[in-house]
Design a protein around this nucleic acid. Structure first.
Lengths: 203, 203
DNA sequence: ATAGCGTCCGACCGATCGGACGCTATATTG
DNA sequence: CAATATAGCGTCCGATCGGTCGGACGCTAT
């Protein structure tokens, strides 16, 4: 049928695979991502699809990397222009809530669900998830420390405690959106963030 | 080998199946719970095991019901002797944190992980999960309202907002325990709860 | 004593899983 | 233009999935 595509087209195929993989994984889980169904969905053969990644695990890792890029683009990047410290922290949280609210991943935050799926296992997938969460926590922690130094947060603030609570707020939001499609959940999350980071400035 | 057991023994077999099911489901997910492996683990045949439940879905539902009983015993019951309102709310949160800390489910809170696994699907499992979460939220909500009426929480407290944040704190704890085995996470959760419900009384 | 109920086994089913292999046809490279 | 590299296909594999079925066995009630 379509024996060989150019390198550019092949890259495009790979992108299509990953795009769909992230969708499916967020809805059905990283395990629910099966080669056969994915290939059928995309009009590929299993072997044609697997040729791009080698193994299912490599596909899962690639999907997580792509999801990470999407998360950066949706949450980190919109806030990156803001001044480090409290302003950027607020911008990140705003984008973070919006990212969940808009359903960037149709089945909710892929990292959260993947973590709950893989936290009892061992192997490269769990390892990557840990690294991704650790990096994210470090970023938040860094801005919190900057905000404390700038006097924008109380001097006795414990950065890791704030990170812990922010994560909780966003996970609760994800939960409420996915299980209840609760329309007021995002507003609750915003209020929680305001309470954690102080009320929004008059901008 | 063991062709027929008495009704009492059969009941015991059923309990053994559910006990193991809850363990496996918390570690591998409700989907990772496979009839064949479960039967092998317990020294049963697949058909002998499935005879108790009929279908895998029925087994999953029964496992969730059992998990619910365990949750009630571990979290609700220890606090049930305390006075309704803020005291009971604090007792519930203490027991709730302890329940996660002690690893009552070896793979973390089964309801949380099952929710993330099934929130993108439809069917009886998701429906049951929703009902279980809804019941739990109502219980918390009720004690919060009582606490407000008693003047133990500020008059402008929004019960659903507190429930939202408490859920977040406990999900964040579960997350930190399962992905990082973070030894200070429980202390963070206790601090968050204190902040939400006011500092603990001098007892 | 015996009939019947219910538990459990062993064998088997079709479907689907991840993956291996050889092939073809083209894009790229010399 | 010739040689090579490679995207994708079709086919096949062993393992495992949930589930069915007939029968073996023993407890219990008649």
């Amino acid at each position: 049928m379509s024996p060989r595509k150019s390198a550019a087209e092949a890259q495009q195929t790979r992108e299509r695979i990953l795009e769909r993989s992230v969708e499916v994984a967020s809805l059905e889980g990283l395990d629910g991502l099966t080669i056969g169904r994915l290939a059928t969905d995309l009009g590929l053969s299993k072997s044609g699809l697997l040729g791009h990644f080698g193994t299912k695990e490599a596909l899962q890792l690639a999907a997580l990397e792509r999801a990470s890029g999407m998360f950066s683009r949706e949450v980190w990047h919109p806030a990156s222009g803001t001044r480090p410290g409290l302003p950027r922290l607020r911008a990140i949280c705003t984008a973070w809530i919006s990212y969940l609210e808009r359903g960037v991943f149709p089945g909710g935050c892929l990292f959260t669900s993947a973590t709950f799926e893989y936290d009892g296992r061992t192997g490269p997938v769990r390892d990557l998830l840990r690294r991704q969460f650790t990096a994210w926590r470090h970023r938040l922690n860094s801005d919190i420390r900057t905000a404390v130094k700038a006097g924008d947060l109380p001097g006795d603030t414990e950065p890791d405690q704030v990170v812990f609570e922010l994560n909780g707020v966003l996970m609760s939001l994800n939960h409420a959106l996915q299980l209840y499609a609760d329309p007021v959940a995002a507003e609750r999350a915003r209020r929680s963030v305001s309470r954690l980071l102080g009320t929004a400035p008059p901008d």
